[in-house]
Design a protein around this nucleic acid. Structure first.
Length: 975
DNA sequence: CACCTGTCC
């Protein structure tokens, strides 16, 4: 049993390494960062940098530089999403094997160098020791000699350091050359180069090739080892030579050593026999939709529907780029553009945009709407009067689309085509097509309330109904009324197009077919009680009955815990089949998974194996995995909801909507016809599931939304034209909170504090905390804490096998039971002291990715402090001041321990618990302040810090009265 | 005691 398990693991391991090698870009995230790097630099090393790109953005350019230098240090320097898209862009671009090769060569060299130096050092020490001994023997007369030795030693050191320098320089130069080539290939692809530029590029490539080759040869010579069976005289020891091979064929009965193999063989045979007898043979002829009995508890599915492919017309098949003979990359791109489904509608679309101010566009995935429509409008001259803006719900999308469009237009990213996302404004004065995240446009609106510089605004992926798009709708609808020249395009997937049309005063709907493969939908015949088990069974059914290599499986689960459980069960069941069934590679993926492990899902599936991806909602929209043919959908997800009465957010498992179910099903039909197995009945789908997921705005804390709208000058929020108005209660609750924080006066008008708060891209309580830090002279510390808090709960990680170690490491930052906020500050400052070391993060079970994000946020906050004229002051030794500043923002989140040992929130009598991840769990203080309240399995306070009750009355006298902060004994009746 | 859907500024 154990040995077969081992076999399986080893096999997986080797397959994984093999595929790493083959699949350069995705596996080696470093490369992707390298690629980003090139965008980041915006061609800094290239002559034709636009001046306006460098000027006026000193912050970003500095950051870019910093980014570049540290990228070498570690692969996971960026947030996961961006790396993923970069890897995907890269995949299209070049095979990148150069870079990987280079990487390896460099690595090997470094190791060798180090070895050499060590050896040399050791030798020198020995020599010196010998010399010293002899000089001491020679007595006083040897002073000169000893000096000579010293000189000698110095010369040697010099020599070594010179050698070291030369080696390093050589590496750097080679690396630079590689970068250059990549840069040029990427940035100038499709552009016409002058003859001189061509020559230069050719020369560089040739040179790079030669250097690489020679160093490879050198390496290969050095690394070659004679197998021990060939001795030095050249005679061959045949016994040794074939020992490994003959071992396997020894008669199991004759010798004991052979026995384990035979035993395993027999056991596997037996297992397979069982499988064949009981479960049906995987060798039987395969037929499309028929499922054979695989298990006793096999699940019966009914094929109920087919999601049609959207191919209305004959499509011209696009030739792969590399076979395009004499045509330039640019021509190929243009042909690809023409092959997109949307191309046939170009004129009609332009006409429609001319005729109507607002247009709802329905385009399935793959129609090319996001990339093409802005280009068409540009070509039609809309950019002569103003920019074309296009919003995306995700950063990745904005970046990758901008990259694609800039290629198609033959310009560099950041010039005519650019993107703007938080921390990265890759636009210039030249930019006419601007892709951005919706949140970014919202921020922009604060400074440019009429969108004066835009002639067209396209809100893409509107059906996702993010918080930001919903607010944008209301604002943009209003702007369109007094700006008749502004064109508005709302693009969405099919389902709720009419709703959008109705909202925008019956704007016409323009339909564009997409390009997608058909997906067969299967429902279960009867409801499944245990969907985890059902998912596992279904996955195995597919794996055993469908030919391996025809497509991978994707299972949607609700969270990390479920994913881990299913992984366990699957592994266990797979063991039961021995090593002889096709390999099933299990790939978990969720946002908080460590970056190294996330990369696994992008490695191509090895021949004869199958991948089984266990994913959260992340795979529904945020990332696409190639090669998925089967989707298993249990029909649940975790959803955040907000109870305005208690002010509590909860994260609970809920059934998904029809739209979500269809989206999930669609994930299987991206590269070929797919199948979707829903672990619920068709009746449930048609009768019980909601059509659409409740939009975020109806289940969120609105305090930030309200603050934003207030600072945009919208006073009557209850009458604001929301597409789906949030409950009045939620709005009032938000207003109340803002009033308590001092952001609004009693007339509901923005105060000075409120205006300052609105500058920060944070929740109002965090913003207030920062504004208050001015008074307590600890803005340095507070912005660190704010940054750490706003990266969320992904800072510490706990590997399953090292939970205790990880917890200990975390407790290390809790000095003196001072609370989680201070612990976060300690983490940040310690990291800063190690010069932002990656190694340090690994040692302390901290996610580098999150820390880097925190640093980015902190940098941004620091800049904004300047803007609201708050001095940067440090007051690290006065923890009380820091805690008071925190309290200024979070006083509504205070709780007190009762006699029974449970906490009760101060304002509302509600029982709450300290989150198990808190450092205060061991010695809970009687008064605490918490960052957020979440309902998962219990009402948990996350990020808790001790506080003194008298601060509450001191800081928020309008909110607390003395009786509130009296110890709860007197208030027992209320509980 | 028993922990963490996904995004965005």
């Amino acid at each position: 049993m154990a040995s077969s398990e081992l076999n399986l693991y080893q096999k997986q391991e080797s397959v994984a390494t093999m595929s790493t090698r083959k699949h350069n870009n995705c596996a080696l995230l470093g490369d992707n960062d390298e690629y980003q790097n090139q965008i980041d630099r915006g061609g800094v090393g290239i002559n034709s940098v636009p001046k306006d790109m460098e000027m006026g953005k000193e912050g970003t350019s500095r950051k870019r530089f910093r980014k570049r230098t540290e990228i070498k240090e570690d692969a996971d320097s960026d947030s996961q999403d961006e790396r993923l898209v970069r890897s995907q862009i890269c995949k299209d671009r070049s095979d990148g094997s150069d870079m990987e090769e280079e990487e390896r060569i460099r690595d090997r060299r470094e190791r060798e160098l180090e070895k050499n130096y060590k050896e040399r050092d050791a030798a020198r020490t020995r020599e010196l020791a010998a010399v010293h001994k002899s000089t001491r023997k020679e007595g006083n007369g040897a002073v000169q000699g000893s000096n000579a030795v010293k000189m000698d030693h110095i010369m040697m050191l010099r020599e070594v350091s010179r050698q070291k320098y030369l080696k390093k320089r050589e590496q750097d130069k080679v690396e630079e050359l590689g970068d250059d080539i990549q840069d040029e290939q990427y940035l100038f692809e499709g552009l016409k180069l002058t003859e001189a530029e061509h020559c230069d590029l050719r020369y560089k490539k040739e040179l790079y090739g030669l250097v690489k080759k020679s160093s490879e040869e050198a390496d290969s010579v050095k690394e070659y080892r004679m197998p021990e069976s060939y001795d030095q005289e050249g005679s061959i020891n045949q016994d040794k030579r074939f020992s490994a091979a003959s071992k396997c064929h020894r008669d199991p009965n004759a010798e004991n050593t052979g026995k384990p193999f035979a035993e395993q063989e027999a056991w596997e045979q037996n297992q397979r026999g069982k499988a064949i007898l009981k479960f049906g043979s995987r060798d039987r002829k395969q037929r499309g939709d028929e499922y054979e009995f695989v298990f006793d508890n096999q699940i019966e599915f009914i094929k109920a529907a087919v999601m049609d492919s959207m191919n209305d017309e004959q499509e011209s098949v696009i030739e792969p780029t590399e076979k395009s003979g004499g045509r330039s990359a640019f021509d190929v791109l243009q042909e690809e553009r023409k092959a997109l489904p949307i191309y046939q509608y170009r004129e009609e679309l332009l006409q429609a945009v001319n005729d109507h101010q607002v247009l709802v566009i329905v385009g399935e995935t793959g129609s090319g709407k996001t990339t093409q429509i802005p280009q068409y409008l540009h070509e039609a001259g809309f950019t002569k009067v103003g920019k074309i803006g296009c919003t995306q719900p995700r950063r990745v999308a904005a970046m990758s689309v901008a990259a694609r469009v800039s290629q198609e237009m033959g310009v560099k990213v950041g010039h005519e085509v650019g993107y703007a996302i938080r921390f990265e404004d890759c636009t210039s004065k030249k930019t006419v097509l601007k892709y951005m995240t919706d949140g970014m446009l919202l921020r922009e609106l604060l400074g440019e309330p009429a969108l004066a510089s835009y002639s067209v605004l396209m809100v893409d992926e509107a059906h996702e109904r993010t918080l930001s798009t919903d607010i944008l709708f209301g604002l943009v609808k209003d702007i369109a009324r007094f700006r008749p020249d502004l064109k508005l395009l709302i693009s969405s997937a099919t389902l709720d197009a009419e709703k959008f049309s109705d909202y925008f005063d019956f704007a016409p709907i323009f339909k564009i077919p997409g390009r997608r493969y058909p997906v067969d939908i299967h429902f279960t015949k009867a409801p499944e009680a245990d969907y985890l088990d059902a998912a596992v069974v279904t996955a195995l059914q597919i794996h055993l009955t469908q030919p391996p290599g025809d497509g991978d499986i994707l299972i949607f689960l609700t969270g990390q815990e479920e994913i881990e459980t299913v992984e366990e069960i699957l592994k266990h069941r797979l063991q039961g089949f021995g090593a002889k069934i096709a390999e099933l590679i299990i790939c978990p993926i969720y946002a908080n998974l460590r970056t190294e492990l996330q990369a696994k899902i992008f490695k191509p599936t090895p021949q004869g194996a199958r991948k089984c991806v266990l994913a959260t909602n992340i795979a529904e929209t945020s990332l696409t995995i190639d090669g998925i043919k089967y989707v298993i959908d249990p029909g649940f997800c975790k959803m955040k909801s907000y109870n305005p009465r208690t002010g509590m957010e909860s994260l609970l498992v809920a059934p998904i909507s029809k739209a979500s179910a269809d989206q999930r099903a669609g994930r299987s039909g991206r590269t070929g016809p797919g199948k979707c197995f829903r672990l619920y009945t068709a009746h449930i789908y048609y009768n019980d599931l909601e059509d659409n997921t409740v939009p975020e705005i109806k289940r969120s804390n609105l305090s930030n939304v309200v603050l934003t709208l207030k600072s945009l000058g919208i006073h009557n929020l209850l009458n604001f034209d929301f597409m789906d108005p949030p409950s009045t209660e939620a709005l009032l609750k938000a207003l109340e909170l803002l009033y308590a924080l001092g952001a609004l006066n009693k007339h509901g008008e923005l105060t000075k504090v409120g205006r300052r708060m609105a500058e920060f891209p944070l929740d109002p309580m965090l913003s207030k905390m920062i504004v208050a830090s001015e008074k307590y002279k600890c803005s340095e510390e507070i912005i660190s804490i704010a940054a750490m808090l706003s990266v969320g709960n992904s800072i510490f990680y706990r590997p399953n096998n090292k939970k205790v170690l990880a917890d200990n490491a975390r407790m290390y930052f809790h000095v003196g039971n001072s609370g989680d906020h201070i612990a976060l500050l300690n983490v940040y400052n310690s990291w800063k002291e190690t010069d932002y070391s990656t190694q340090w993060c690994h040692e302390n079970f901290i996610q580098v990715r999150s820390m880097r994000r925190a640093r980015d946020i902190r940098d941004q906050l620091k800049r904004l402090l300047e803007r609201v004229e708050i001095a940067l002051t440090s007051n690290l030794n006065d923890l009380e001041a820091i805690k008071k500043a925190i309290t200024s923002g979070f006083f509504p989140n205070s709780a007190v321990m009762q006699k029974n040992g449970l906490y009760r929130t101060v304002k509302l009598p509600q029982t709450v618990y300290i989150h198990p991840s808190s450092g205060l769990l061991q010695a809970p203080p009687s008064w605490v302040i918490y960052h957020e309240l979440v309902l998962t399995s219990k009402e948990y306070m996350r990020q808790v810090t001790e506080l003194k009750p008298e601060w509450l009355v001191e800081i928020a006298p309008h909110y607390f009265q003395l009786k509130d902060v009296a110890y709860p004994d007197s208030k027992k009746a209320a509980v």
